[in-house]
Design a binder for these strands. Structure first.
Lengths: 220, 220
DNA sequence: AGAATTATGTCAGTGCCTGCCAATTGGCTG
DNA sequence: CAGCCAATTGGCAGGCACTGACATAATTCT
């Protein structure tokens, strides 16, 4: 079972040895992979090397991750799930855009812990940048983001009680929101440095420009 | 020389036998590939089969296309280039969003010819849908779109005489615009049918919702 | 403890993609 | 037109990502 987003798993019954072992193997694979990527680059790291570093067979690697990209994006995937959950727990009265905006900020607040329980935060940050600068990884990341956007759209429609077939606004809003999130990620990645806090500031600043940017004439 | 977007190649001096032959080989590869993809699906078609259908060696295929994805996206890439060119030829007085909107519509107007000179239009349309529904291709497509958006952003900034480092609006506007373009493509793809005209209508309708979607409270 | 289930390892094989070198082809010059 | 130069192509060997099949080992259940 790959994803850990089982909403029925509260007050977990003692997870059992098997589950704990799998979790450890998975985490070790991620850590080994990210370290190697950071050391020698994504393309120059082979799956065999990752498997060896984690002391499992190559075949086992592919039982935990469908492909080499998946392990590079593993932490982002966790954060995505957290983001979704955060949005769902927002007050229903809140308007769509503020809800999305609030959810990202809250997510980044809490994401640190989730990440640190698997890999050092600065390794994750280096990975984040690596994804932006590695074509194959960026492609995979963008595809995953489009899936996230689909779920966001459904959630927004649900909150507002709208039919996605009849009202384009949820799709459009999420598309615009997602677009801005991606630009900020890219721009932040291009600046060689800066931490989570800078990303945060950049995001807020850009989100706040959504309205003005759409205004007809900028020269006014 | 991979890309054909040389803006200095007008009133072409007789292209020479060599160039014409390359062009023919390339077109044949594209046509063979798209036909096979449409027939047996992208993943179940091997590069060897494509090369054989086009009567060249596998090695030659990879001299024309960096990878299997490239040939599937070849026509989209041409249209992207056309879109860029169309935008650049717009009256400078036009405001950013109308310029973008006008450029897409004009592009789709003229794209038919460009495409038909290489592959039948309906084959292209089937390919378009295939891209949306094939994870690997969608990923590659999204990455290319992000490159297009980067160029759009530069063009918008140039038109408006703005510094991209200082003013976020070009980035934000293009991000929102690009987001909407992608959703419409996806939605259109999900409906199993409908031609270019439907895509056009959908796009216009959704673009027009950008303003309303960003309005704070939809229930008002 | 033994049976049933599940995770892991090994092996063989396919397909994408690359570097290298030899052979062919088009273009150009004397 | 002969002959040289440069570009294009083909063939081959090899690396790496990934998969199916089967045997083995580790948990869990009874």
């Amino acid at each position: 079972m790959p994803a850990i987003e089982d909403s029925a798993a509260r007050t977990a019954p003692p997870p059992g040895l098997r589950e704990r072992k799998k979790r450890r193997t998975r985490d070790t694979l991620i850590r080994s992979a990210l370290e190697l990527f950071s050391l020698k680059g994504y393309e120059r790291t082979t799956v065999d090397e990752i498997a060896e570093a984690a002391e499992v067979s190559q075949r086992t690697f592919f039982r935990y991750f469908a492909n080499k990209e998946e392990v590079a994006l593993a932490m982002q995937t966790s954060v995505d799930a957290l983001f979704l959950a955060t949005l769902r727990s927002r007050p229903p009265a809140e308007a769509p855009l503020p809800a999305l905006r609030g959810a990202v900020l809250d997510t980044w607040e809490g994401a640190g812990e989730v990440i640190e329980s698997v890999v050092p935060l600065d390794l994750h940050m280096r990975t984040y940048r690596m994804i932006e600068s590695t074509p194959q990884l960026l492609a995979a990341r963008l595809r995953k983001l489009s899936e996230v956007e689909e779920q966001l759209t459904r959630e927004i429609a649900r909150r507002e009680g709208l039919d996605l077939g009849a009202d384009p606004r949820p799709h459009v809003l999420v598309a615009a929101f997602g677009g801005v999130m991606r630009v900020t990620a890219r721009i932040w990645g291009e600046r060689g440095e800066g931490g989570l806090e800078d990303l945060r500031l950049l995001t807020v600043a850009y989100l706040d420009q959504l309205g003005p940017a759409l205004a007809g004439n900028w020269r006014a």
